[in-house]
């Protein structure tokens, strides 16, 4: 079974082979479900010229915000990137290229990439600037835009639990982009809260089968909250 043991014990090992100018997918929605330790390690490596594919770009000083601080990203592909001031500065100064992509199209581009589908037609963005320069087609009376799929050299994924064979289970809305990204990385590295022995996760409830996963590392997570919203105390039972 050792051929299927995906567990690594250091972040150096987890990101072995990661170099400048790579394309890297990073899971998460805002700061929810991001691979915190892997992001930190890329920051330590100092790799530059990266094309980062992630729904958001972190916040100042946390998540992908750290890569921005070190000017590690040359191209950012995401759907909503406006939670940090540094991002705005890099965008306006032209230091970083940004390709804004509708969220559902981004998710499907990654899903398709991992599933061996090179492109797909979607109605999303037809008649908007998202469709500029892209092939369009009318199918059954409706107009669609051809969207190429996405793959990456590395996919950095956050899951709740993994077994040693790389089978994954995600937790609540920390799932988000992580399962698709796991399928679309040439090397998929998963940072998890808990690693268990193969056989301990019920095969009925595996979200991502281990075939997509090359490396698994146990991380420590701060799980910072962006918008801490609490029910007013008067409404408490």
């Amino acid at each position: 079974m050792s051929g299927f043991n995906k567990v690594v014990t250091s972040y150096e090992e987890a990101l072995a082979g990661f170099t400048d100018n790579m394309t890297v997918m990073v899971g998460g929605f805002g700061l929810c479900g991001i691979p915190e330790g892997l992001i930190e390690q890329v920051n330590k490596l100092g790799s530059t010229g990266l094309t980062a594919i992630s729904n958001n770009a972190g916040v100042d000083g946390f998540g992908l915000g750290k890569w921005l601080e070190k000017r590690q990203i040359s191209t950012m592909i995401g759907s909503y990137v406006g939670e940090n001031e540094l991002f705005e500065k890099l965008l306006l100064s032209g230091e970083m290229e940004v390709i804004l992509t509708p969220q559902g199209t981004l998710a499907e581009k990654i899903r398709a990439g991992g599933a061996g589908i090179p492109a797909f037609f979607t109605a999303t963005g037809y008649g908007t600037q998202v469709a500029d320069g892209k092939e369009t087609r009318e199918i059954d009376g409706r107009n669609y835009v051809l969207e190429p799929s996405l793959t990456a050299d590395f996919a950095l994924v956050k899951a709740w639990k993994a077994d040693t064979m790389g089978n994954l289970i995600f937790r609540k809305t920390a799932m988000n982009f992580n399962p698709m990204m796991a399928t679309a990385g040439k090397i998929t590295v998963v940072e998890v809260e808990e690693i268990v022995e193969a056989g301990e996760l019920d095969p009925n409830y595996i979200h991502t089968p281990g075939i997509y996963v090359q490396r698994v590392i146990k991380g420590e997570f701060e799980k910072r909250i962006e918008q801490r919203t609490i029910k007013p105390s008067s409404e408490k039972a």
Binding site: C32, G33, A107, I110, K172, K223, I225, Q227, T229, I230
Partner: peptide
Amino acid sequence: IDPDLINAGKQTVTAVTGAAYFSSA
């Protein structure tokens, strides 16, 4: 409160009886 449970506005929320979680795709 659970950092793993947010809405599309990134606010912490709860899930009702009969809720389901799934991927962005």
